[in-house]
Design a protein around this nucleic acid. Structure first.
Lengths: 189, 189
DNA sequence: TTGAGAGTAGACAGACCTGTCTGTTACTGT
DNA sequence: ACAGTAACAGACAGGTCTGTCTACTCTCAA
């Protein structure tokens, strides 16, 4: 349990989630088969099924990891400020960082539901991560002292999501800056 | 060639595109097989391949039809006004109509690229329909007489896209109204 | 009347999919 | 030393996928 290689994950479970992340994110969860995931992870098929139970279980683990990375990234930017208005703008700074990530191809919580019929297990995690974001914006609106906090959260969500789409579909590098300016208008009003 | 049934499309080609639209949109282009499409259309498999050449050809026809319906819907709202500021807001009225459509499940041009690897034929049509929207916003910004038209178009695109995401993922019925208010702020500034 | 065009039904090939199962190897704690 | 655990490789079943092909039917115009 002491020392191990730091560059590649130790456990088969970790390697599987990493491999699933790379392939599912790049090509879509339906376009990538189990065989390619286990080959990429260097893991036996039985290991996958003992660890996750099914492909759906692996997909859930992939999305949950994305959710965790997302909340960490956003909170890192938000916690760098004390003024609540600057905390709001910091959320859009985290977007700029995200868009500059190598291999960035859009939000998986936006793409995956389009691949599946409504009611699929992936919907739960999408709901989870969106509720988290909305709660953050609502809290920050309260900290600023704005009157209609749900309406402010709606507007900030709108601006946030629009930036992701512009970055994904139009490959606009400055989408986060556009959104940041819009957010500044929202919290100034 | 004169009279025919009006409720169901006449040609096999039309029936195929209609069936593809319903199934692809509801469940994703990768989750729906050819067999289900031809069964739903009441058409033989050879007819599909003689008309479209491949599944990709059918997907393109499905997306092109969605693009045509989209431009018609938007222009119908825009042309109902003469003031360019009201024309901009009318684009968001068309969104409200869209969100109230039975079976609305999000924008196919947003979902399909997430299902395919980059460079797929669907990307062309996504690019087409987004360029059309951007051109519309740029023209309207010019008609209003705004200084930095590309920046205004960026902001309006951001607001427009965000409304679609909120409607799709959060099932927010008033997403179009939120976006309309934001758009009003953008063109007032 | 005859021949072309469009459509139908359905078998088929070959590839790929998820998930199960068998048998083997290697490490680890008692 | 030995049992337990986790991992390995890979065959296999049963199903689905796209795309091709054969053979038949219908309509319509020359």
């Amino acid at each position: 349990m002491s020392q191990a290689t730091l560059d590649s994950p130790r456990t088969a479970r970790q390697r599987l989630v990493m491999a699933a992340d790379q392939l599912f994110y790049a090509e879509g969860i339906n376009s990538v088969g189990i065989d390619r995931v286990i080959e990429h992870a260097g893991v036996a098929k039985a290991t996958l099924y003992s660890a996750f139970g099914s492909k759906d279980g692996l997909i859930r683990a992939y999305l949950m990891r994305r959710h965790d990375l997302r909340t960490e990234r956003i909170m890192r930017h938000v916690n760098a400020h004390s003024d609540p208005r600057e905390k709001v703008l910091a959320v859009f700074d985290s977007l700029a960082e995200l868009f500059a990530t190598p291999g960035w191809r859009g939000c998986p919580f936006l793409a995956s539901p389009g691949e599946t019929r409504s009611g699929d297990p992936v919907d739960e995690i999408t709901t989870l991560t969106r509720a988290w974001t909305r709660a953050l914006f609502t809290e920050l609106a309260a900290a600023i002292g704005m009157a209609d906090q749900p309406a402010v959260a709606d507007a900030l969500m709108n601006v946030y999501d629009g930036a992701i789409v512009a970055s994904q579909l139009d490959h606009k590098a400055d989408a986060a800056q556009t959104a940041r300016r819009l957010a500044a208008m929202v919290i100034a009003a």
